[in-house]
Design a protein around this nucleic acid. Sequence first.
DNA 1: GTCTATATACGGATAGAC
DNA 2: GTCTATCCGTATATAGAC
Lengths: 203, 203
Amino acid sequence: MSTRDRIVGEAMRLFWEKGYASTSINDILKAADANAGSLYHFFPGKQDLLCAVLDTYQSGIRPMLLEPAWAGIDDPIERIFALLARYRQLLIDTGCTYGCPIGYLALELHEPDPVVRVRIAANFDGWVDAIEECIAAARDRFPADVDPRRLAHFVLTTMEGAVMQARTYRTIETFDQSIAELRRYFNALQQTAGAPKPKGRKK
Amino acid sequence: MSTRDRIVGEAMRLFWEKGYASTSINDILKAADANAGSLYHFFPGKQDLLCAVLDTYQSGIRPMLLEPAWAGIDDPIERIFALLARYRQLLIDTGCTYGCPIGYLALELHEPDPVVRVRIAANFDGWVDAIEECIAAARDRFPADVDPRRLAHFVLTTMEGAVMQARTYRTIETFDQSIAELRRYFNALQQTAGAPKPKGRKK
DNA sequence: GTCTATATACGGATAGAC
DNA sequence: GTCTATCCGTATATAGAC
């Protein structure tokens, strides 16, 4: 594994565990067993390293996040909740301390440089894209006026808000309850899908 | 206005605008037109000042947040959405940069001292209490198996998640859409309230 | 591309006169 | 309770040999 990859990987882990501001260049160097000269050879500064981390997250959404979460699950709606269950497991594994690394950075960096902000937004977009695909695949279970992308953003809203509370209360309870409410919302939407529009239903 | 109050007030503003870590003691001193000696006369350290800020937020929930938001609004469910509209206005007024100061701190402080974390949780609790009261006041509009506190936490979940996205995308659109989905969920719950439990309905 | 030593600034916190 | 000067650690970043 190259020095560059080690630096990016350890930075990714440390930004997640300690936050961006609280992680010093020295922390990263020690964890990656590298020297300052190496880091500044690859990156002009700390922020550029952050950009590399965010790019790595983005390109990892499908192979590292979605594919493991969706293995063996075919129903598109169940895939949504399987993804949310991954975040639940992440919280459980860390004593409800670490949740979504992107959401964390999104709030920690108050007025980030545009180069950083667009990358955070791109990560959210990639996540929402995946949820939207699931909803679109189950399109005929929902009322016609349900907007798949809007609903997908709402799933992200729920996940991030639920993670925030789990972290604050250091308990999985509020997370589970928020996901349960989201599930109930999905059920309610699907129940009302058939009745109001009995026109042109396929098959 | 006392020096102490000026220090707490400016710290509150700066923590909100720049974050806790990025706000230096010197920033606060300059903004409050005070000296280091004064600050350390009132507070042992920066974290104690943060605690004072969080206590101020908590005691201000009703007079500073709920009462203005609820002025002239009697319907308990409309009160919930009126409160959410306050956060919307906050985002609008700041170019979608600053949202809920508590949620911000909740994610910025990764592993905060227990003294800090319990104060963040207390702020969330106070907020959820208010929402729960609204839902409880409209209890008979919802199905019997709706848990008012659980649903109240879900409102907080939605608000915080929606604010996070508004900040990231620098647009009010995703915020509005998330609130619209929450409204739709509330409507769906209320529509199903009458039918499944026609027993002992009052009046 | 890797290493050590270091420049330079700023952080939180303190001392002690007034 | 207020003020100035300052300690001391750590931060990001750089210089320059290898």
